[in-house]
Design a protein around this nucleic acid. Structure first.
Lengths: 216, 216
DNA sequence: GTCCCGATGTATCGGCCCGATACATCGCAA
DNA sequence: TTGCGATGTATCGGGCCGATACATCGGGAC
């Protein structure tokens, strides 16, 4: 999951680790507070070994605020890396629908075609609905077995789940209303051995989402 | 964190692994869907090594639905384990206030004294408030730098954070109104080298929480 | 009758990710 | 000039996960 996020950010511009961490924190602020260096650097090494990115010493004269010759390593995405990024964006496994996975995918929706966006949104919705049903079951059937605090926790969780389903519903409606994407509401998971044509960048998402009513 | 949860459940009644996993799933349904066996069994082994629990082959004649002589291992908490559980419940580190840590602690609030409950509730509130402020900052200052989908994600996250703060506020008010716990609202983190007197079980939480308005 | 399937049950392995820690430099203010 | 906070790279032990393997039990399909 982190792999996808890193590739996505490096697609915009090359960066060194520290910078990357900060960008990651603001882009994924909802998902995780800040990525640990104990995660970041090993992951970067892994990506480098795989050939998705390159490491290089930064040219000291190019960085205005830093005149030093210290070892700042700048990471840059490769052509293979861009391909990999596109693959990861388009393909959706089970881990695409948990909190972290969905968040990362969603954060890069502006680089995802509408069909994939819908597929992921609906997959996530299904996941949250299941969670919601589970909580409802517990609250109705096992209510007597649990103490008041545990029940309160479940209630709060149920509330959050219901709210997220509604949010997803709005987003899905929005996506569809842009223009109906060929298929009707029936069959949503096309086998899709091939990811969509993948034009290099900045083609998708003509209209932005605005499903949230502004709170005063 | 899992350690606390296991000790807490085994305090109620001895269990074997499979059962434990199911109980864990219903008790912590909001926190994590279901604990992995790849986590559960190593953790149980760790707890056994530490002396907090004992493993024993179940007496086949005692289990009504199962007449077999198969190797079902029943885990039981020890006296040391109960002490350990009380310690973990009372002491709160930084990890007590993240999603998972807070959830587990909250789930066992009925076995926690009021002072500790308040301390944890307020610590969690502070944590969520920080998160909320961070999201507000991003939404106001860095709005231009981010695409519409990323912003929508932040908005949804901010909404959830605001909602949780309100929830915590209600819970805190509730706790306080039960009876004012000696100290005023000023100093909340007593050094507390010793956990509260620890009467073996079933003493805390005279009145249950009901901060949630019933939705129809 | 028997055959297979889903629930029950225990256990390991590779891998991701985290917090703690160590170390070094830069700009700035006391 | 001293020292502190931000910047910057990196490793280590350990928790937790998903995938996998293996075995038994009760019951329904055939």
């Amino acid at each position: 999951m982190l792999e996808l996020a890193i590739l996505g950010l490096l697609q915009e511009t090359p960066m060194h680790g520290y910078e990357l961490r900060k960008e990651l924190a603001t882009k994924l602020g909802t998902i995780r507070a800040a990525i640990s260096y104990g995660t970041l650097y090993p992951t970067l090494k892994r990506l480098r070994t795989a050939g998705w990115i390159t490491e290089s010493e930064s040219d000291p004269t190019m960085i205005p605020p830093m005149t030093s010759k210290r070892g700042r390593v700048v990471y840059k995405i490769t052509a293979d890396g861009k391909e990999r990024f596109a693959d990861l964006l388009a393909q959706a496994g089970p881990e695409t629908y948990d909190d972290a996975g969905f968040g990362v995918h969603f954060a890069f929706f502006s680089r995802t075609d509408r069909a994939t966006r819908l597929r992921i949104l609906e997959g996530r919705r299904r996941r949250v609905e299941e969670r919601r049903e589970g909580l409802r079951d517990v609250l109705s059937r096992a209510a007597g077995r649990l103490d008041a605090y545990t029940l309160e926790l479940q209630r709060h969780g149920l509330d959050a789940a219901e709210r997220e389903v509604r949010w997803l519903e709005e987003l899905i409606t929005n996506e569809r209303s842009g223009r109906a994407p060929a298929g009707t509401a029936g069959e949503l998971d096309i086998p899709s051995a091939e990811p969509p044509p993948q034009r290099t960048a900045g083609d998708a998402s003509p209209e932005p989402p605005r499903p949230h009513q502004d709170r005063p």
